[in-house]
Design a protein around this nucleic acid. Structure first.
Lengths: 148, 148
DNA sequence: TGTTTATGTATAGGCCCCTATGTACATCGA
DNA sequence: TCGATGTACATAGGGGCCTATACATAAACA
């Protein structure tokens, strides 16, 4: 990709990065209206029906490392979105669940996310969106296979 | 995207995020062998032929905000990859250029990046890679248009 | 059952990215 | 030429992600 002038920014990797960053900026700005952030969405969806899950379960679900989830949960707890209770079956662990406030804002947050995805795909036909999703899954499988 | 069970992780946005993160992890690990990091690549390429550029120019080139570039340059200077000299034409500014060390490692870093992109696209035909790049450009244009 | 091994969390330290803000210097126009 | 406006950097503060490490408790097993 690009011979004479070496431009890492025209590389697929850089496009992924820029799109991901832009989506996070936009999502965070819009979700702030209901008190959420994009990084919290996997947690919110995992606990949406009153489920209680451990930090490790949430980390695996959201595909982030455990200390990352620990920080995220800490911020969410600080902001009144989740609560912890000791796990009666395992004294190392605590169970995390959504607060009433978080549950109430959930539909609004969900709608903001949906709308954002629609706008990001604007101008793409349904078939093109399908194609893109298929390619993304294959690339994701490739890069995750590269880490072994 | 997913009706009954709400799963933000099956959304295009989350795929972009995961791919970008995985590419950064892989790239950083591989580039560490030559003393580079993925975030530095735009700077390295901008200054590859002995050019001298200001921090602001580099920020615009790399598509990051000025304070982000300030930190990046500071780390690169600490690690002996770049050097600063006062800009004779503007006393607010300094000109940044690569050190001898950085220039020597450049071809190796470039090759690592190229190889990484090849592996990430494994299994995709040339036509599919073209399709993907075209879709990425359109999505990037969409999301950047959303920030106004 | 006692010891090893596995698992759940916490903590420390670091990179990268962002917004908001302040300061010094450049520039431009009245 | 001087004041208004713009531009280059620095600094402060925070989110989000990662690796490495240290504990405490569980589980498995010799």
């Amino acid at each position: 990709m690009a011979e004479s002038v070496w431009t890492p920014m025209l590389t697929p990797g850089h496009y992924f990065t820029r799109i991901a960053r832009a989506l996070a900026r936009i999502g965070d700005k819009r979700l702030a209206a209901v008190g959420f952030a994009t990084a919290q969405l996997p947690v919110l969806s995992a606990l949406r029906d009153g489920e209680k899950k451990s930090q490790t379960e949430l980390a695996r679900w959201a595909k982030v490392e455990q200390p990352t989830m620990a920080q995220l949960i800490a911020r969410m707890e600080r902001d009144g979105l989740v609560q912890r209770e000791p796990d009666p079956a395992d004294r190392r662990s605590s169970l995390i669940s959504l607060t009433q406030t978080a549950r109430e804002q959930l539909p609004a947050g969900r709608e903001i996310l949906r709308q954002g995805n629609v706008e990001a795909m604007r101008g793409l036909s349904d078939a093109e969106v399908e194609t893109l999703l298929g390619l993304l899954k294959r690339v994701l499988a490739n890069v995750e296979a590269m880490e072994g």
